[in-house]
C-alpha cells in the first residue's frame, strides 16, 4: 500500500517534471526568434572592453620613458613561465630591461603579469589577432612588445611613487606634501 502511495507520489513528480520539460522545450524553441549572440568574425569586428586580456605590450610612462624596470615580478607570477627578462642598470641608477622575452606560444592570457607589475609597464590589450605561421614568430622580444604610449594607465609613473631619493630621482617625492627638500645632514647631532 505504502509502495503504491509512493508510486503515485513519484508519478505526480514525473508528470510535473514532464510539464517543466515541455516548458523548457518551448522556451528553447522560442530562442529561434532571438538575436544571435555571436558575430560573423572577420566581417564583423567584436566590440572589446578596454580590460580585455589580449596581446601583452610594454608601455611607456607619461614622459615617454619605458616603464619596465626589469624587476622580474611578471616572470615569477607567470603560471606558464613564458616571460624571461634581464635587468640592467643605467649610469643614473635607473633599472630597465636589457631584454624582455615573451613566448606567446605559451601565454594563456591570464593577466597575472599585468596585476603583478608595479610599474604598469606590461599591459594586456584588446588585440587578439595573434596568429602566426611560424612558431618562432610567436616569441616576442622587447622591441616587439614596446609601444610608444602609456596604455590604459595614462598618468602613472612608478619612479615618482617609490618614495626614494637619489642621484636618479633628485628630491622628487610623491608621498606627503611636506616632503623634505634636501638630504639628511648626517653630521648633525642636534635632536
Amino acid at each position: 500500500m505504502r509502495a503504491l502511495v509512493q508510486y503515485c507520489v513519484n508519478l505526480k513528480g514525473l508528470c510535473v517534471g514532464a510539464v517543466t520539460q515541455v516548458r523548457t522545450i518551448g522556451m528553447v524553441f522560442l530562442h529561434a526568434a532571438r538575436k544571435r549572440q555571436t558575430l560573423l568574425y572577420p566581417e564583423e569586428k567584436p566590440d572589446l572592453a578596454p580590460r580585455y586580456r589580449g596581446r601583452p605590450v610594454l608601455t611607456r610612462d607619461p614622459n615617454g620613458v619605458e616603464r619596465c624596470v626589469g624587476c622580474g615580478l611578471c616572470a615569477v607570477v607567470c603560471p606558464v613561465d613564458c616571460i624571461a627578462l634581464q635587468q640592467e642598470e643605467r649610469e643614473s641608477g635607473q633599472w630597465f630591461a636589457k631584454f624582455f622575452r615573451l613566448n606567446m606560444s605559451r601565454c594563456v592570457f591570464c593577466g597575472l603579469c599585468e596585476e603583478a607589475c608595479p610599474t604598469s609597464a606590461i599591459q594586456l590589450t584588446p588585440d587578439f589577432e595573434l596568429g602566426e605561421y611560424r612558431r618562432e614568430d610567436l616569441v616576442l622580444e622587447k622591441e616587439d612588445l614596446l609601444i610608444s604610449g602609456t596604455g590604459k594607465d595614462h598618468s602613472y609613473s612608478f619612479r615618482t611613487h617609490i618614495g626614494r631619493a637619489s642621484a636618479e630621482f633628485g628630491a622628487q617625492w610623491a608621498e606627503g606634501d611636506d616632503a623634505p627638500q634636501s638630504p639628511v645632514d648626517t653630521r648633525s647631532l642636534l635632536p
Binding site: 524553441f29 530562442h31 532571438r34 544571435r36 555571436t38
Partner: peptide
C-alpha cells in the same frame, strides 16, 4: 545554433 543564439557552420 539557431536555438542557442549562434550561427553554426555557415
Amino acid at each position: 545554433g539557431l536555438w542557442q543564439d549562434r550561427y553554426g557552420p555557415n
